[in-house]
Structures are given as structure tokens and as C-alpha cells.
Amino acid sequence: MQLPFFSKKSSEKPREDLICKQCKATVPAKDAVKNRFICPSCGAYLTMTPQDRLHLVADKDSFTAFRDELKSVNFLHFPGYSEKLEKAVTATGEPDAVVCGTAAIDGTPCALFLMDTRFIMASMGSVVGERITRTFEYATAHRLPVVGFAASGGARMQEGIVSLMQMAKVSAAVQRHAAQRLLYISVLTNPTTGGVTASFAMQGDLILAEPGATVGFAGRRVVEQTTKTALPEGFQSAEFVRDHGFIDKIVPRDALRDTLATLLRLHAPRNGGIA
């Protein structure tokens, strides 16, 4: 197995102001950080980048990104995909829709992956699948827990069947990690849908979710077409999915770091226990 090398990412760009999708208020970056990415005017959850997320949950300066030079390719010559990729790379400064690495959460080391909805709705193509797979492989080899922040529109259809196979590839790596009795905490953020829900997002030992996040398999419109009735408000919300028994806990953003820290501590290897 090829292990990724470590590198410190030092390209800290100045943060841009955020716009609340609910009340349209402009939230200065400084205030957003201070308020843990909850809109100070209306209380809605602001869209977070992987870097914001790290800032929220990981110990200061503890994050080390896996260094790779992976780049998505329009291998099917799918109409419009090359342009979409280019736009997303420019907009995010990232090569694809997930950031992976290691960090500490209140002192407990773990491997992390953080999906980025700004990049083609964090759809999963070859690069996303490969990066998350390597994260689980690294965590298995180094006996680390994995904390994953899921967010995705689903599989990246512009990569055809190869994107579907990413679901199987990542799942196999999750299975190997689990077989070593290592912890995987899946945190569902807005929105977690499609092939990501139908694979690693729902394979956590513990599944947490942010309040109000959309969590589902089929899209709302598809369900409405199938059922031929309008769906109630809150259908496929994290609370709905928890009430139906598929999420362990809804965790507000300002409690996320503490909850993760406690859960990680509760799973720390014990002396004389089962390693």
C-alpha cells in the first residue's frame, strides 16, 4: 500500500465574507469564525469550507494534509465536465471536492476527511473516492480513528460507472478499517445525499448530523414523482432521519468539537483492554 506523504499546508488565504442563505445577511469572516459559522442575525448554519471546519473542530495547527497531486480528468470526454472542473478549481483553490489529512481533536489524533460542496456539489468522482480510500488505508495502517464530514450531491455522473465504483472502493476500505476494530465517526452535513449516503456516510460506527441538514438517498423531487404526493416539511431533514432510527445524534455546531472530543476519548485504547 502506498502511503501519502505529509506536508504542512501554508497557503492560508484571507477569508472572504460569508452570505447567509436564509436571511441573505453578509457575515464578515471574522464574525462567522467567532460565532462558529452560525449566522448572527438569524441563527441559520452557514456553508463551511473544509478549512473552516478544521478551524471549528481540530486543535490549532494540528492539521497535516495528505500531500498528493491527484487531479480529476475528463476521461469520458463528457460534455461540459472539463469546464466545470476548471471553474471549481478556480473557485475553491482545491484540486477536488475533499480535503484529507490527520489532526488532533482535543489531543486525540485522528484521520479526517472533509467534503467541500463548493466543488461541483462535492460529488464523488475518482479523486474524491481515491482520497477517502487512502485516508481509511492510512488510518488502518496507523491504527487511527477516522472522523469524516460528509456532504455531497452523490456520485459524479460525468465520470460514469467509474464514479459508481468509488462507492465500492471506499466501502471496502471502511470494511478493512472496521475489521481492525477502529473507530469511524461519520458527521453528516448539509446536504448528504445519493451515492455518498448509500455508502460511507452511513457506514460509521457513530453517525452524527448537523441540525437541519438534508440527509437522504433519492432527491426530494424524485421521491415526490415516485410517491405522487407532496412531501411534508422536514422530510429528509437530519431530525427526520434521526427519528426514523438512522442517526445517533444531532449535534449543534457549537457543541461539535466537544462531542467529537468526548467520543474519541471514550474509544481511546485502554491499558489491559482489548487493543
Binding site: 475489521a179 449516503t197 448509500a198 415516485t226
Partner: peptide, 26 residues
């Protein structure tokens, strides 16, 4: 594909598929 009705979502269609893939993997 998997059934897309409301009751399928309520009963965890995504989780069921995820578990099936995971089970076959190992």
C-alpha cells in the same frame, strides 16, 4: 435502481444499500 418512494427513505434506503455493499466487501 433502488425504490425511491417516501417509505423507502423513511426506512433508510441509503443505509440499507451502504450495509449491503459493506457486507459483500468483507
Amino acid at each position: 435502481g433502488a425504490y425511491c418512494g417516501a417509505e423507502a427513505e423513511e426506512r433508510g434506503q441509503g443505509e440499507a444499500i451502504a450495509e449491503s455493499i459493506l457486507t459483500l466487501s468483507g
